[in-house]
């Protein structure tokens, strides 16, 4: 089977400081990869390099495109990469504010990706937006309200709807539950797990929260100081950590 995403030797440094170094892995269709580590571990740098927000110093990010099969997204033209990021890719930001248009209604937020790829029937766009609000458990009657009137949890669910409406094949998530209350986090995690299962989503989730990867990720990479120190099946890594740093991470979560 061809990997959906194949990452080779991704390296990024800032001046003399290592962001991430020589990271490689394959992601197969329908798989969810978790990347965990503390802040400064390089996990966000890696995510941004893969999603095309940062240009790595070295390495390839090969995506299995619909049209032309596997292509290196680092060297493809900017128009092609931007097209990917509004069709087959999605990016869920930690802060809903960064991923939503706060001055645009919920329906307009969800409909934007549809309009970006040529949808020109208002009624159909609105119906699709309403359906998606229901799927992420936002009252469809709020379709014309702006996200500024939504709670933090609702904003995050709206951001997810806005990203998934075009049926992307790969979703990047950056601390999707970060900054939310614990009870709100739990509901969001349940929702994400349901969507991942129902849609067969492939995703890469960066988080410092081991509960998130325990629930969502099939496989796990543990990062420290820009390097991957341990990788494997999620349950295996969390239940039987081999690297001293992973052991420390796991034990600190047990104390919480």
């Amino acid at each position: 089977m061809t990997p959906l995403l194949s990452v080779h030797g991704i390296t990024k440094s800032y001046g003399g400081h290592v962001g991430c170094a020589d990271v490689a892995f394959d992601l197969y269709p329908g798989e969810v990869m978790g990347i965990v580590g503390e802040s400064g571990s390089g996990k966000s740098t890696l995510l941004n390099c893969m999603a095309g927000h940062l240009t790595p110093d070295a390495g390839r990010v090969v995506f299995d495109t619909r049209m032309d099969g596997p292509r290196d997204t680092v060297t493809m033209s900017e128009p092609e990469r931007r097209m990917l990021s509004r069709t087959d890719w999605a990016f869920v930001h930690q802060h809903a504010r960064d991923g939503l248009r706060m001055g645009v209604s919920a329906g307009g937020n969800v409909g934007e990706r549809l309009m970006a790829v040529g949808a020109r029937h208002y009624g159909e766009i609105r119906n699709k937006a309403t359906d998606w609000l229901e799927r992420v458990e936002v009252d469809p009657a709020r379709v014309d309200d702006r996200p500024t009137t939504f709670s933090g949890g609702m904003q995050q669910r709206l951001q997810i709807a806005r990203n998934l409406v075009t049926g992307p094949r790969l979703v990047f998530m950056d601390e999707p539950t970060g900054g939310l209350d614990v009870s709100v986090q739990a509901r969001l995690l349940d929702l994400l797990r349901g969507l991942v299962r129902d849609m067969g989503l492939s995703a890469i989730i960066v988080t410092h929260d081991l509960a998130v990867v325990r629930l969502l990720a099939d496989r796990l990479m543990v990062m420290k100081s820009g390097h991957v120190v341990e990788a494997g099946l999620t349950d295996q890594v969390l239940d039987d950590p081999q690297h001293a740093y992973t052991q420390l991470l796991v034990s600190s979560v047990l104390q919480v």
Binding site: R101, S105, G108, G111, E112, M115, V117, I125
Partner: peptide
């Protein structure tokens, strides 16, 4: 696409 978002907002 954003131009149509503006018109969408108008209609909504």
């Amino acid at each position: 696409g954003l131009m149509h978002v503006k018109l969408y907002e108008d209609i909504s």
